[in-house]
Design a protein around this nucleic acid. Structure first.
Lengths: 147, 147
DNA sequence: ATTCCTATGTCAACTGGTTGACAACATTCG
DNA sequence: CGAATGTTGTCAACCAGTTGACATAGGAAT
């Protein structure tokens, strides 16, 4: 019996994640998970902790714990919302934007190199299948909307 | 700027994992991660902890911690290798085989339903792209080999 | 045989997530 | 207004991984 397609998908993802993690770590001294979190924060500047957590696909508590070190390292600012006693407004700093720009471009370049170097890979075909799959599974076409 | 393909891949996987986890949990009272671990164990019966860990893509320590509860619950047996003082031989019990058979078939059925219900999805095309991607990334064509 | 190197399983400490509870604030409804 | 209800961020406790260290067992080389 051959390996289920879902398992194959899984292995491919894990390999890509590992690769991306090494790259981002090596070139920016930051975890891929952190990069992802900052990318979400950059897509919704000024969001509060709750929507940031939703956007990043984690619990409120996890987001809440992640923020202070990122503020300390100069990637984010967290200020109380003037119109709301308890809510925080989280915003990326220039440093975060720089990181996201550089690392994002680098990763995209690596990824598309893969496709140009290996003509038997068809990015458009893969992407189309993934997008329909996402649609069928009921995922939003793009995450990071403000309510 | 549109979302990087690698991010899209990620979201699709996460959604599928969540779905699979709910299904396996509901119908078999077991975590999807546990199901995956048992599936690996079933693919290499009699393996030791180290190769099990490699097969499951986790550290030796993680595998070592995972085994005792599974033995307690009657999914695995762990016996010292007679030819090797320190090595353990891990083997799935009938209960594990039953679980893997049932849950595996169920998941595959769900997954291929997705493709038959949505003709704009092309499993062969997706699979072919994934397999070439796996090859290009240097992944083995199928995990679970004994050394 | 002794020595040296490698493999094996486990441990302790750490990490980054989870859930459930909670106080503080906001909002809605009589 | 005041009371019930809902939001928001944080905390404690837990869970399942990780790394690095380690005692112990096998095998190779001299």
């Amino acid at each position: 019996m051959s390996e289920p397609t879902s398992f194959l998908l899984h292995r491919v993802i894990v390999a890509m994640d590992t690769y991306a993690d090494e790259l981002v770590r090596r070139e920016h001294g930051v975890t891929f998970a952190t990069f992802g979190f900052l990318a979400v924060a950059a897509a919704m500047p000024g969001a509060d902790v709750t929507s940031l957590a939703r956007g990043a696909g984690m619990s409120k508590a996890a987001a809440s714990k992640r923020i202070p070190p990122l503020v300390r390292d100069g990637y984010l600012t967290a200020e109380p919302d003037p119109h709301h006693g308890r809510r925080l407004r989280i915003a990326p700093t220039p440093r975060a934007y720089a990181l996201i720009g550089a690392a994002g471009a680098r990763l995209e370049a690596e990824f598309s190199d893969l496709f140009t170097l290996h003509p038997e890979l068809d990015e458009a075909a893969l992407r189309h299948q993934l997008e329909t799959l996402a649609g069928v599974l009921g995922l939003p076409t793009d995450p990071g909307e403000q309510p």
